[in-house]
Structure formats: C-alpha cells, structure tokens
Design a protein around this nucleic acid. Sequence first.
DNA 1: TTCGGGCGCTAAACCGGTTCACTAAATCGG
DNA 2: CCGATTTAGTGAACCGGTTTAGCGCCCGAA
Lengths: 353, 353
Amino acid sequence: MARPRIGDVAERAGVSKTAVSFAFNQPEHLNTVTRERILAAADELGYRPSPIARRLANRRTQQIGLVVPQSTHDIFANPFLPELIRGIGDVCDAQGIALVVVPPVHGSIATAIKDALVDGLILLGLEAQHPELAQLARSEMPIVALDVERWEGASIIAIDDVAGAREAAMHLAELGHRDVVVVLIAQHPDTPVDERQGISARRLGGIRSGFAAAGAGDATLGVLSAPVSEEGGRAAFATLAEGPLPTAVMTMSDVTAIGLMNAAVEAGLRLPDDLSIVGFDDIPAAAWVTPRLTTVHQPIREKGRLAALRLIDAIGSGDGRVHSREILPTRLTVRGSTARPRKDDRLPVAEIA
Amino acid sequence: MARPRIGDVAERAGVSKTAVSFAFNQPEHLNTVTRERILAAADELGYRPSPIARRLANRRTQQIGLVVPQSTHDIFANPFLPELIRGIGDVCDAQGIALVVVPPVHGSIATAIKDALVDGLILLGLEAQHPELAQLARSEMPIVALDVERWEGASIIAIDDVAGAREAAMHLAELGHRDVVVVLIAQHPDTPVDERQGISARRLGGIRSGFAAAGAGDATLGVLSAPVSEEGGRAAFATLAEGPLPTAVMTMSDVTAIGLMNAAVEAGLRLPDDLSIVGFDDIPAAAWVTPRLTTVHQPIREKGRLAALRLIDAIGSGDGRVHSREILPTRLTVRGSTARPRKDDRLPVAEIA
DNA sequence: TTCGGGCGCTAAACCGGTTCACTAAATCGG
DNA sequence: CCGATTTAGTGAACCGGTTTAGCGCCCGAA
C-alpha cells in the first residue's frame, strides 16, 4: 500500500529503473512501445516520481529564496513586497522555478538560510554588515543583494537612493518647507536605526544635499523611525503629534506615508495644506489614496525581474566569479500630497507672492 | 574543492557518519567531547548538511504550497493574496515551514503540482470540478481547499459568501438602488465565468435573495466579469460606460472596486452620488481610498491561519481521513462608497422623502 | 562474581531517484 | 560482407543524508 517507487514500476513493466527514468525524462532514448508500456505501468500503480529524490539527484532544488529580515506577517504588511515578487515571478514562472520567502527562524536569519531549500538567494533589507550573514560569503551559494552598496561575492541590484531622496527634498524646499521630519525605516521598533551607513544614510545624505542645493541648508531636519506598515505610519504621526508639527514629512516607504496620512486626517488635519507628505517606492496604492501621494518612484517590478534574472544566471553558469552591480533610476512623482506650507514665517518674502 | 559531505567530516573527526549526523540532530546521544570534535571538524571543512538530502531521508520537505490558478504576476496584483499569506505565515513561521506559491507551469496546474516540493497544498481560487485536479484526489497529498463548497478528500475553509453578498445587496436595495451591475471574477479575460456553480453562483444567489428580501425583487441585475486587479476594475468601468450607467456596482473583490472607482473618478463621476460601489474582501486598501470603500468583510488572515493550521495538522497526523469544513463569517462594512442613487425615477415615492 | 542496563558509538540499510559506462542487437556505408 | 555506428536498454554507482539494530564497555546491584 506504500507509495510506489521507481523500482516497482520497473518490475511491473519488466524493465530497469533506468528505463523508467528515461520514460519520464528522456523519452527519446526509448523505443515508443517500451515507453508506452512503462507509462502504462506507472499509471496503473499511480506512480509519480518523487520531487525530492529527483532534486537530490539533480543537485538543483529549482527554488530560489527571498531572504527578508522580518516575519512573513510583518514583511507582507508592505505592498512593496508583492510588487517585487511580481517582478521575480515573471522570470521564475517562465523557468519553472519556485520562489520561497525565507524569514528568520526563531529570530535567526542564519538558521533560516541554512535550512532553506534553494539554489540561490535574493537578499532584501539586509546590510552587508549584518553579523549573521558573515558565513554566507563562505558558502558558494549564488546571491543577489538588493539595495546595498557593496556585498562580497554577490551581484547587486539597487536604486539611486541619493538622487531620489535629493529630488524629493528639493521639491519640498522649493515649495518653501523648512521644517521637515524624516521617518526612517525601523526593522524592529526597539532597535535603533543606523543613520551612518546603509540605506538610511544614503537617503538622509540625499535629503540634506537636496535642501542645501535648493538654498535651504538652514532647514530643520527632524529624524524619526517607524516599522514599515500602515500602523507604523500611524505610530509615526502619533509621535509627531506630541510636539509642534513640522510642515512636511518625508517617509522612506509609501505604506508608512499612507498610515501617516490616515492618522493625520483622522486627527483633523487637512492634507496637503496642514502637512505635506512624501513617500518612497511608488506602490500602486500611492495613486489610490486621497490626496494622491507624492513619492519617489522606483521600478519595483523591474528590480525583482532583474534580481531573478541575475540570480538564475549565476546559478546556471556555476561560477560565482562574475558579479554585476546595477543601479536603477528613481524619479520623483509629484502628486497631491505636497503643497506650500500653509503659513511659514521663515519663507522668504519673495516667495510668498 | 567540492562541497564537503558528511563522510568527509566523519573521516576528519575520526568517527562514523552516524556520529556526525547525531552531532547535528541529536547531540544528547553523543559524548560532549566527541560532539565538540565533530563540530570543530565540520567547521574547519565548512560543512553544512545538505537540506535536500536531509529532506529526502526525512520524507518531509518542510514546505507547503499555495496553489493558485494564475501567474505570480497576476495573482499578486490582488492585495488579498498578501493578506492571506500573512495569515498562513503566522503559522508557518512558528513551525519553521516554508510557503511556496504554486502557479501553473506553462498553463498547467497539474504539472505545477506534480513538481511541487511540498508536503501539502492549500488550494485557492479553484473549483472542485477543475479537470486538471481530478488526479489530485488519487495522490495522498494532504489538501485544504479554500472557498469551495465541497472537495473530495480535503479539508475546507470557506466564508459565508451567500450571507455576505445578500447583506450587501440588501444594503443597496435599502438605499434605493434598483439598477445594479455585478462584476464577477474572471480568471482569464477570455474564458467565460460559470454563473451556475462555485463562488459566483453563491454570491449571485445571495445578491438576488438580498434584493428580494428587501422588497426589490424587480431590480435590474446586470452581470459583467473582469480580472481581479486594479486594471480589471478599470476595464469593467470602461465596459460599463459604453451603455447607460447603473446606479450601483457590486464587485467581487476590493481591488476591482478600487480600479473601478479610480476610472469612474477620472471619467468625471462623483462618488458615491453618481455611482455607488461595493467591494468584497475588505483588504487594507479599502479603508485608504476616497471615498472609503463599502465592502463585505471577510477574515482573510484568519482564513490563512486556519488553512495552514488544518493543513499542517493533516500532514502531521498522517491519516488523510478526517476532513473538516469551516465556514467563516462575513460582515458588511458600510463606509463611504455607497449612497442613495442621485435620481432614480424607479424609486418608490414613499422613499424619496 | 555475575548479570542487567545504560552509554557511546558503528555498520549497513534506506530515502527515491539520475546517470555513467557499457553491451547486445540492429542499421548503415562502402 | 565487414567494420563502424546507432539504437535500446542495463547494472552499478551516486546524490547526501537519517535511522535501525547491535556491539563493546563500564557500572552498580545482587
């Protein structure tokens, strides 16, 4: 009554295991008659080659992993991820490769990676300095790292964070904003954000340079951090609302911006007049909310597509030698969530007209 | 230079393969000194047990599949999926089980399932009648089917479609709507929707009974279908706009409703006065759009959680005998996208007041 | 002193396939 | 008609682990 194995089929069809294997994988190596006989036997027995055994022998899992620094629950709270996956899926679907999301196991990313049934990894939201990932370099697993500046032994797909942030900052500066708060990405509510390296550093740098370039080097720049989710955005607004409000907020993700918007509106603010809000990513929902969100667009799906392409390429070629580094462009998409500050006494007179 | 195997570690540590295996999996069977020695040898060699080999021997992939009827690209265009996955993830993450999405391979779901590296399957958007899935019943793979009435050999998690649709219909009827179009779910733009069985039939039935119960059995009910995506919703509006508009539209998913809303607003309609819109699902974005979407709420994450729970349970228990069937409640969430029709000459005089 | 039992470890079988090297028979070219 | 290929298929090794049954040793109890 046990699951039939390849040997059972072979016996029933009166051939060798090899022949059965051929019948399924390389039919051209077999006489049509024999093949039909084998297939018939397999069918009668309800035989189906074991996917795991097949993968072991082939030394390919036909799966790639998307490593993320947070739980599935948290990470999928950001619509960015589905968009990225759509891009990855375009490539994977076509090649019959499955994508598996690899969240930390008991908080450990290293453990999760060790157990992952994959031929290669796409790293999201991880900085090269991450202590748990040191050993990753030793394994010869092909890797594509997203949004990092450099990564030993991996290909890189990133965006021009500096330019995007800078462009957004200039936009706000030109509208007359001089009192702005930046909401950084907090992976865990309690661990502090490293403002000196990584994505936060790049974007903050871009923002500062943007204000300076727009002749607003004197602007006040507050910094805050929040988890990337609608709730995180609401929490950020709550923190903001404890003191005097800035005239504008720049968030590092649209979903945060949306949560912040929602909380602001519920608090009675009129957007964008009472508060300008800028997002980052340009997820689909950014165009659905009211006011429509001004945000730094990045080609999310294309990023996913490229990452999958480079990874699968690396897996296929076998040699982990060649590592590419591609920087995709960002572009400020001005919509309705930004406007001139309602009353800003620091605004140069000339600009008030 | 090849990847070290368990035998290499055994040799270097001067022990048997078994001992090495124990060192990693059942340390208590080994003397501490020996274990340390083995681990040290493993470390020096850079040894890491092969996940595939381990899985083959254990006859468990530690993965479950979410079977969907469309490409990753299309299926992730609906924010419903991420929400469902968040629920599934709550269970899977805790148990160290990975979730892999199983879209059709070259259009074939059967092929995709055959090759899937999983211990069990959650079926989404598939009806029991699906021809490709007949053989699934023969395999002893544990299955949980979502949103179906019955499924041979599977546990079922569904929602009360009829009640939800009915409640929404009554809401519209009570507002005075008598000219309504229903937008059904089209999995592929070209294949027609089966209105006589499955989810569409249940909801249409609920809608009809709702209008009847509200004393509006005479209401005109148009039927349309569209892919489940923002673009699908826009397409539905385009079709709608070809003729005289109804006073209300009921969609079978929020994302469709949102697309329809967006297209309607762009066409110059004022919502909800010119057109009432009802969604289904209550995805997070339903509360972000303007007007906020009136929709039939279903507990998406809970559905995912339950599905994962039942599936993992079935996998663990081994006997595919016991099949549960759970129906989760729906609830109409009235927000801002529905209102009395602006001018409806068929509205009973008494109601006009 | 002898016996039972636990500790620490091993050899061999097993998970379920793929593939390499090879052979016998059939086909082909000259 | 003969040597060279091609066709059709086989046996054994291999992928890289886990697990069962059992062995030798030491210890404590009788």
